[in-house]
Design a protein around this nucleic acid. Structure first.
Lengths: 206, 206
DNA sequence: TATATATCGGTATATTTTTATCGATATAAA
DNA sequence: TTTATATCGATAAAAATATACCGATATATA
């Protein structure tokens, strides 16, 4: 069964919630999950039904089974090689952040045009000159690119990534990127988040 | 007219596109914007109609007028005081990032439990001990809190923020936070983004 | 064993969001 | 001036998403 994007977005929350349950909890109901995550119980049941057909009346779902199914659907068991372009504050923070491994994302290195940034980080990862990018990606068979450059450079980097065999781009630059239809561009839309927060505050008369 | 969340999410893209146009472009059509941002022209027209009634047939919209209206609706002209809790890599990156000012977000300082983190950053902003949090917020009348702690600490910080008068929370910890209904919690759902990317790569047989 | 109950899963309905269609209109060109 | 065209804005349709309802069922309790 295909999983819609809306559903997909909620799955990580389910997984996280299930993982932090005490280990003696063997079964859990959609109702309980829904209450904890401020969602409707029917919605949760429908979501879980998309990825795992194994719910039992009165009992609920097997926690272990759900976790397995969620991790499979979410691809956390995959190993995705990634590189970062833009070794500014955010880029470096991501390069050094070990937490992405949990999601199957292995960040190999970062790249930057600024020669002052080239070198090795505290945690032992490398920042290479951008000129090495294409060769590095084809040799390491990198499929995922993270863009943490300023907006003005992002489209150019996006093009470079496409040329270098990258198939999915995680974009943190506040700009709309254009690429072929076979390339997935996921925008981390911080400006939109901020706008929602700001609007909420304004509404309250702050 | 009220602006739905879906619409709100697209507005920053419109604004950014309009701002980077050459200054001699006085008018622009929804069709043109749509083509540039890979959206439907009717959708763009409907969105713009939510925030600005001033489109003329054949001519389009006044660029200047649209920018004004967008900035007003998005609240970029507001001044929102914010603080960060969690002075790790991401927290520090955000603390030092000047780009948020453009969106009306003024980050005053960061807080952390770790006494080794306390001090002043390169750009002159302070990292205070968490024990000072509540007093700082009430004195400075801070309304927006950014959470960049590990997941295990996030709910506790969320509670602290609510007690301290904060009305909107920008949460980067990968966990669902619970707060009163008058508090807006905006989750920056990186895990969900990653899952979508990973699923796309898996689908392509990588 | 018989009954009660919480929960699932399917169907139906409601809501939200997006896309399509069409007449009206301002500008440009003939 | 007349005609052609690009665009708007309104209405309608379609698609996606979320919610409500209800019978079936596995477990618990009397």
């Amino acid at each position: 069964m295909s999983v819609s994007i809306s559903v997909m977005r909620r799955l990580p929350a389910y997984l996280h919630y299930l993982k932090q349950l005490p280990p003696d909890v063997e079964n859990i109901s959609a109702t309980t999950i829904a209450a904890q995550l401020d969602l409707g119980d029917v919605l949760v049941r429908k979501d879980l039904n998309c990825i795992s057909g194994a719910g039992k009346p009165r009992t609920g779902y097997s926690v272990k089974g759900l976790i397995d199914d969620l991790e499979r659907v979410l691809g956390y068991k995959n190993k995705n090689l990634a590189v970062i372009v833009g070794a500014g504050k955010l880029g470096c923070a991501m390069l050094e952040h070990s937490g992405f491994e949990e999601y199957g994302l292995h960040i190999l290195a970062a790249f930057d045009v600024d020669s002052n940034k080239i070198g090795i980080t505290d945690s032992g990862k490398y920042i290479y000159p951008l000129s090495d990018f294409e060769e590095f990606c084809s040799q390491a068979d990198v499929r995922l690119g993270v863009i943490t450059t300023p907006a003005c450079a992002a489209q150019e980097i996006c093009d470079l990534m496409c040329r270098s065999g990258i198939r999915a781009i995680w974009n943190f630059a506040p700009i709309h990127l254009t690429a072929g239809k076979d390339i997935l561009i996921q925008n981390e839309n911080m400006a939109a988040s901020l706008a929602l927060l700001s609007a909420h505050l304004a509404e309250m008369g702050c």
